[in-house]
Simulated assay, not measured.
Amino acid sequence: MEAEIVEMLRTKGLKVTPQRIAVIKEMMRGGHFSGEQIFSELKKTEPSISLSTVYNVLDTLEKAGIIRSFEAGGKTWYEVRMEPHVNVYCEDLGDVMDVDLDLSSVQKELEGRGIEPKNLSVIVYAECSKMKKG
């Protein structure tokens, strides 16, 4: 996995650093993360890493198109998943989950209006404890 990360960074013209590798590895576990969550996890194995370093890495990775961020529930969330999808913010749980829905009609409608989406992500606020099981 590390070789893939190194290649990805180089392809994007970024310097390969241990901090960038560590942040990407953590995020590739899947899901949605706040900067504080990434910092908390990395601090366990990288005691010298700082919160500002984590945020600087996240900013660099986002600008390079490796990750993306969105706001929900008063937090900035980061994810590596770049294809269009729905992010559901669970208000009662304070967490985010992905729901795969076909957003191609939204994309086509936007493009038909001359809008070229760079990042298509729908954010839905919900009470997840009321979700149907299965």
Rank of each mutant, 00 (worst) to 15 (best):
S121P: 02
G134L: 09
K118M: 05
E127I: 08
D102S: 13
E46C: 06
L120P: 04
L120R: 11
Y78C: 06
H85D: 04
F33L: 01
K44G: 05
P84Y: 03
L51F: 08
S48F: 05
E111H: 03
C90I: 00
S121K: 15
P18H: 10
N119C: 10
G74Y: 12
G31K: 00
P84H: 08
A72C: 08
K44H: 06
V6K: 14
T76M: 12
I66R: 11
D102M: 05
V54T: 10
L103F: 12
S129P: 14
F70G: 10
H85Y: 13
K15A: 12
V54S: 09
M27I: 09
N56I: 00
D102R: 11
E4D: 14
V23F: 01
E83Y: 08
H32C: 12
P117K: 13
K25Q: 14
K75N: 12
E62D: 06
K25R: 15
Q37T: 07
V23P: 00
E127V: 11
L58W: 07
K132H: 13
R10C: 03
E116A: 13
E2M: 09
G65T: 02
Q19H: 03
D102T: 04
K63C: 00
I38A: 01
K108D: 12
W77K: 02
E79V: 03
K130R: 15
A3D: 15
P117T: 14
D98L: 07
G13Q: 10
L61K: 08
S48W: 04
E116N: 14
F39R: 00
R68E: 04
T53S: 15
L58K: 11
E116L: 15
K108L: 14
Q19N: 03
G94T: 08
K15M: 05
T60I: 01
E111T: 14
M131G: 12
A64P: 15
S105I: 14
E62H: 01
R81L: 08
L14S: 08
P84R: 09
C128P: 14
Q37E: 15
I49K: 02
M82G: 14
S129Y: 09
D100S: 12
V106H: 10
I21P: 00
L120S: 07
G114F: 15
S50P: 06
P84N: 07
P84S: 11
A64Q: 13
M27V: 10
M1E: 07
V16W: 03
V23H: 00
K132T: 00
E46K: 03
L61F: 08
V57K: 04
G73T: 07
T11L: 09
F33G: 01
E7Y: 07
Y78S: 02
V88W: 06
Y89C: 13
H32K: 04
S50I: 01
M27L: 13
H85A: 02
E36L: 10
